[in-house]
């Protein structure tokens, strides 16, 4: 950190880390909201996939990157709503449903995309452009790392604070947490468990959808199959790793993002390690972090349990 040369190499790496962490951050925030309300959201990956595609369609239709982000958000939210109805009102197994969501998203997006491609619709759309935040981007070190990004990155900074605030400082947040910890007590206190969970899961899908939008209209201004590549699961790992807390989960996401950036940098520098191992690195790191630190974390007490419990 002392010599300017080291700093000059470190800053782009960390900036790339923030960029690569952003889709994880969106999805992790979504995962926290859903899981704090007691609904396991394995379908986060699928909601992100729907988001990548929804954003592509949105940007294609409106010709604007923000239209794309909105499309991604809607696609994620609608997918989540479908999942939520089955999980909450039909009380079906959340893990099974989540797996179904992931399979559905992969199949459906590829199906429609291939049909569109055949019809001659371009895979490229309007994407986001980097926008330097006035003043903040001029701060040495911090500026180039955090404030010379695309607008979706700045939105997630705000959302981290908003989610943390809602969760810990508002009645909504209290309701959400009580429903996830002790639904019976919440129910007795007059809170509609189903409604809170429905809203929470839909919100989580909307966030994951923006995370997906970041990957398509944010990163490559196009859609391809397999863009998400397990990031929904890494985000879920970050949720657990961050003990269902927005700030700690954000830290975990930044760690994974930086690991990913490091891996790309090493590929570019032609480090004598096979690129397969470099590509593997973020997944190995996530697993290691998981093994080393996670067993101390305690999930919301009612996580994964439908309410009301089945009486027979």
């Amino acid at each position: 950190m002392n010599s300017p040369i080291e700093l000059a190499m470190l800053i782009p790496l960390l900036a790339a880390g923030v960029r690569l962490a952003t889709p994880l951050l969106y999805s992790a925030l979504g995962g926290i909201i859903s899981e704090r309300s007691g609904v396991t959201n394995i379908g986060l990956e699928g909601m992100m996939i729907m988001g990548t595609f929804g954003a592509y369609v949105g940007s294609h239709l409106t010709g604007s990157a923000w239209g794309g982000a909105l499309g991604g958000m809607l696609a994620g939210a609608l997918t989540a709503l479908l999942f939520a109805v089955m999980a909450i009102f039909f009380r079906a197994d959340q893990v099974v449903l989540g797996t179904g969501v992931n399979i559905l998203a992969l199949g459906l997006t590829a199906f429609i995309y291939r049909a569109m491609y055949k019809a001659g619709i371009s895979q490229f759309v309007t994407g986001f452009k980097a926008w330097n935040v006035p003043l903040l981007s001029d701060i040495p070190v911090i500026g180039p790392i955090f404030f010379r990004q695309i607008p979706l990155v700045y939105l997630v900074y705000v959302l981290i604070a908003v989610v943390a605030f809602i969760l810990y400082r508002t009645t909504w947040g209290l309701k959400l947490r009580s429903v996830g910890e002790l639904p019976r007590a919440a129910d007795t206190a007059g809170i509609s468990v189903a409604r809170v969970r429905l809203m929470a899961v839909t919100a989580s899908g909307a966030l994951a959808g923006i995370g997906g939008a970041f990957l398509s209209v944010g990163e490559i201004s196009a859609f391809t199959e397999g863009l998400v590549a397990g990031r929904g699961f890494i985000a879920l790992a970050a949720v657990i790793f961050g003990r269902w807390d927005p700030l700690r989960a954000a830290g975990a996401c930044l760690l994974f993002g930086t690991a990913d950036a490091l891996q790309y940098r090493m590929q570019a520098l032609k480090v004598p390690i096979s690129y397969e191992f470099l590509l593997m690195f973020p997944y190995v790191l996530t697993l290691l972090a998981f093994i080393l630190f996670v067993h101390r974390s305690k999930p919301p007490a009612a996580l994964g349990k439908p309410y009301p419990e089945k009486q027979s």
Partner: peptide, 25 residues
């Protein structure tokens, strides 16, 4: 017929959903 084969995943997902729901009901 020129139908993208990934439609099978959609059908599979629908089957998963309906069976998951029916197991409970």
């Amino acid at each position: 017929a020129g139908v993208p084969s990934t439609i099978v995943s959609v059908i599979q997902a629908v089957v998963i959903f309906l069976v998951a729901v029916s197991v409970v009901w």
